[in-house]
Design a protein around this nucleic acid. Structure first.
Lengths: 198, 198
DNA sequence: CATATAGTTCAAGACCGCGTGAACTGCACC
DNA sequence: GGTGCAGTTCACGCGGTCTTGAACTATATG
């Protein structure tokens, strides 16, 4: 979601969401991966973060960075950074199969966690901040003489609006939590170890 | 909201949200206007759309394009385009005072309308599309032989996820609708005429 | 009609985030 | 030590969006 339906409306020009050519991905995989990429971009993340997660989730079994690189046609460095982010958010796990030297990466079940997590962050660091700003403005305005009563009421209303948005957001986050459940259990079969227990 | 808390976390580097220097805005006005700008940017609109609306809302009375230009330190062309957008979304009204030649612009009550409206659009044009993509992928996958049962289940789950997100979104939109009420009635006092009844 | 001012449009440029690719680190194996 | 591969970091460039500023249209006024 960049500049989508914004300005002109112009319903005819729907940017194509069709998947581009891929390396060795099966067509249906490409579509699904791309779909996740779109969703995730929609939420304000990087499209490729979504694509990587999507691929890992779809494949079910942990992939190496090199495989991801090939399948999604990304650069080495890019994959590294994307994985770092995903891992950091806890939606991807770095695992090592017993007598192999390379790291592999597995999708954690819920992308939703990532979304909610970060939406929470945004909310905390932001909407809160907005409210603070508004009440600050109100304080200042009260201090100055000659500010019409009406204006104060308007400021107040803006704050109310922020409150509403905040409450709605919280609600949204809460309901989003309805988890998709733990499919992944399948390959947490003990054949893998987590990062840290090296 | 650009790249905010994304990658590194790094809580120390909070980009300053403090208002920049302004023309003749009172400090408290500047803060409030900037706050709206931030919120609106957060929602995926242009910061300046928010600032313009904020100014108009705060002032209560219709302003000319020139005034907006000066107060917010924007270019002529920019103001024109911003106002067009806002008007188009129905959050700003173009009015003309009786024996004056210039257009003035007044803030419609609820910004929320704008947000919900567009969020709806996004949702309609997008999440729906995602679902379509996913079921398309599923169809394809079923067609091809040898696609493991497990993978189909994963696709299914992704679709479920999309459903959840959609439902949550709808809920969110609904609760956001709690309107802030009609303050604006004040200057719809008959002294103004609407565009079109010229 | 000439002039001035309000308003619109659009090409050029500023700006910014993302991904690339090369340089680097770390580690294993010979 | 040397070679090779996995993984990380980062300066740069591409591609996108937003804003500007100038050219243009529209409208009122003398």
């Amino acid at each position: 979601m960049k500049g989508y339906l914004w300005t002109g409306g112009d319903p005819g020009s729907q940017k194509s969401l069709a998947p581009p050519v891929h390396g060795r991905l099966a067509p249906w995989e490409a579509i699904a991966v791309e779909a996740v990429g779109n969703v995730i971009e929609f939420w304000g993340f990087k499209r490729n973060q979504g694509r990587v997660w999507g691929l890992l989730y779809l494949r079910g079994e942990p992939l190496t960075a090199g495989e991801i690189e090939r399948e999604l046609d990304l650069s080495k460095g890019g994959v590294s950074m994307l994985l770092r982010d995903l891992e950091h958010w806890g939606v991807v796990q770095r695992v090592r199969v017993p007598q192999d030297t390379v790291w592999r990466y597995a999708a954690e079940t819920d992308l939703v966690r990532m979304v909610t997590h970060v939406v929470e962050e945004r909310e905390a660091a932001f909407v809160t901040r907005i409210r603070a700003d508004l009440s600050e403005a109100r304080r200042l305005a009260e201090g100055v003489g000659g500010v019409h009563q009406e204006k104060l009421r308007r400021l107040e209303r803006m704050a109310v609006l922020a409150d509403h948005v905040e409450r709605a957001l919280r609600l949204f986050i809460k309901t989003s939590r309805l988890d998709v459940g733990g499919v992944l259990g399948a390959f947490r079969d003990g054949a893998l170890s987590r990062k840290g227990e090296r």
